[in-house]
């Protein structure tokens, strides 16, 4: 490492005017001053004090920007929960995902209508309505008698048009709806009731 001429120190300290230096030393002083200027411009804000001051003077971000920032930044979120509650939550989620949805009210399509099935079957243990809309399976549209007065009913959404149907009482007795008003031969020696469903918009 070369040692600087003491006259350069004097010029940098302001003790000696640069004009008093020979030209080659004046050139060195100029290079040193340029380098010092670069250091002042680039490194000073990187210092701790510089960063703190810059942060203090930075304008407060808007509420929306803060929310957006919070949402997009990484956070460590800790939820403390008793194991019994986490098991209960898991059971509820499993029920929501796995149990078929019979509970939500339907949104009716333009070509769908409401069909109400009612029958008087005192003493019956179960009553189902079956037809092409159940693939003639029992258990798909069970009727209910909540007040045990022997009147069983169900309300279902069906496509608009004609539907043949029958009631199945206690899982084995096939009964034609005496209130249907319309009947067709079933091709097996009996009759099916015939229902004409109107679209909700008529």
């Amino acid at each position: 490492m070369s040692k600087l001429d003491p006259r350069i120190h004097e010029v940098l300290d302001g003790d000696l005017p640069p004009e008093r230096l020979p030209p080659e030393l004046r050139a060195v002083v100029l290079r040193l001053e340029r380098a010092a200027g670069l250091l002042r411009a680039g490194l000073a804000p990187a210092s701790v004090a510089g960063r703190v001051l810059a942060a203090l003077h930075r304008p407060e971000p808007s509420r929306g920007r803060r929310v957006l920032q919070w949402l997009t930044e990484r956070h460590v979120i800790t939820i403390a929960m008793r194991p019994v509650w986490s098991l209960a939550l898991a059971a509820v989620l499993a029920a929501v995902v796995l149990v078929p949805d019979h509970g939500s009210a339907p949104l009716l399509g333009a070509q769908e209508g409401i069909a109400r099935f009612v029958g008087h079957f005192p003493g019956a243990r179960s009553v189902d309505v079956v037809g092409p809309f159940t693939d003639w399976h029992t258990g798909v549209v069970p009727l209910r008698d909540d007040d045990n007065d022997g009147v069983w009913s169900a309300v279902v959404v069906l496509p608009a048009g004609t539907h043949e149907y029958m009631f199945v009482v206690d899982g084995e007795r096939w009964v034609v709806d005496p209130l249907a008003g319309r009947y067709v031969s079933d091709g097996f020696g009996r009759q099916n009731a015939l229902l004409i469903v109107r679209p909700v918009g008529r």
Partner: peptide, 12 residues
Amino acid sequence: EVNRARRPRPGV
């Protein structure tokens, strides 16, 4: 009645 109505689902 509309709220009570359910769609039959033979496959379920």
